[in-house]
């Protein structure tokens, strides 16, 4: 097992962008974990300059490396605290999405027939739903909050994973080792979860990393459009308040850092997925 992990790491390491992605992701993860200790100020507190005047939209300085907002809040602290929402929503929805999508793909692909038809037509319907408008409307109906954001993301994004895993299962189930497993008396569930899952798992992980990126982006979009939880600081909500304050053109330090953070984290997800793909698909390794 350890040897296998080592082997996987050797393959992963060959993809330099993947390693960069992993580094960025780890950095953000650490920031999110230790956010309360790292943030110099309370992100919602209105701050004052040393001379006692209100710190209204101050440009970056030593006291406030990323400057302050119209309300005199420290942007750096907001970005640090905001990483928690991004990672929480990203990771949770990526894993739930992978779980649901992989299972639907496995069941549809393995059983075939009307089960496959039913699940794949459902997937087609979900493919017909525009992602962001759906998420916004759902959050507007269910009310803002992280749980509802995650629900909205998961309800849509399982579709890709399900389709990809199904097609992988369709090829796998034609292979003799599945026939051999049936011959030893393995039940359908055993074949699906003991024989097929280990073979589709690398591909699932590719899509987990991709979904991570999508989820973070979607959460940021929802918050940016003002449908996020008003009590929480997230990167999207920082951008939202900058936009509402009409400061997008004046205060670059207010929009730049959260925007860059979103870009970097989403990018790291895509980079990681690229490297995992080389593990999932050995043919790519020869490039």
């Amino acid at each position: 097992m350890l040897a296998r992990l080592q082997e996987l790491w050797t393959i992963f390491r060959r993809d330099r962008l993947g390693v960069v992605g992993l580094l960025i992701f780890t950095l953000f993860l650490l920031v999110a974990l230790f956010a309360p200790y790292l943030a110099p100020y309370d992100p919602m507190e209105s701050l004052y300059r040393p001379d006692g005047s209100f710190a209204r939209q101050d440009p970056p300085s030593w006291r406030h490396p990323f400057g302050t907002t119209r309300m005199g809040r420290d942007v750096l602290s907001q970005v640090i605290i905001g990483s928690r929402v991004a990672l929480l929503v990203g990771l949770t929805s990526a894993f739930i999405t992978t779980f649901i999508g992989t299972n639907i793909g496995l069941i549809a692909g393995y059983y075939g027939g009307w089960i496959d038809d039913l699940l794949m037509r459902l997937t087609d319907i979900v493919y017909g739903i525009p992602f962001l408008p759906f998420a916004i409307i759902l959050v507007a109906i269910l009310g803002p909050g992280l749980t509802n954001t995650i629900i909205a993301i998961v309800l849509i994004s399982w579709r890709t994973t399900a389709r990809v895993i199904r097609s992988q299962v369709l090829t796998l189930k034609q292979r003799t080792f599945i026939e051999a497993a049936r011959l030893t008396g393995a039940s359908n569930l055993r074949i699906i979860y003991r024989h097929l899952v280990p073979n589709v798992l690398p591909l699932s992980l590719v899509y987990t990393a991709l979904n991570l990126g999508w989820a973070i982006m979607t959460e940021a979009s929802i918050s940016f459009l003002g449908y996020g939880d008003p009590r929480l600081v997230s990167w999207g909500s920082i951008l939202f308040s900058a936009y509402v304050a009409q400061a997008v053109y004046d205060a670059w330090w207010w929009v730049g850092p959260p925007g860059l953070a979103i870009t970097l984290l989403v990018m790291s997800g895509f980079f990681i997925s690229r490297a995992v793909e080389e593990i999932a698909n050995p043919r790519l390794r020869e490039r």
């Binding site: 003799t176 080792f177 280990p198 073979n199």
Partner: peptide
């Protein structure tokens, strides 16, 4: 019945699960 009647397949590169 499966316990009593078994089969050896043609292609040993295909008949063993690569992850087992």
């Amino acid at each position: 019945f499966r316990k009593k009647a078994q089969m050896v397949f043609q292609d040993p590169y295909e008949s063993l699960n690569p992850r087992f």
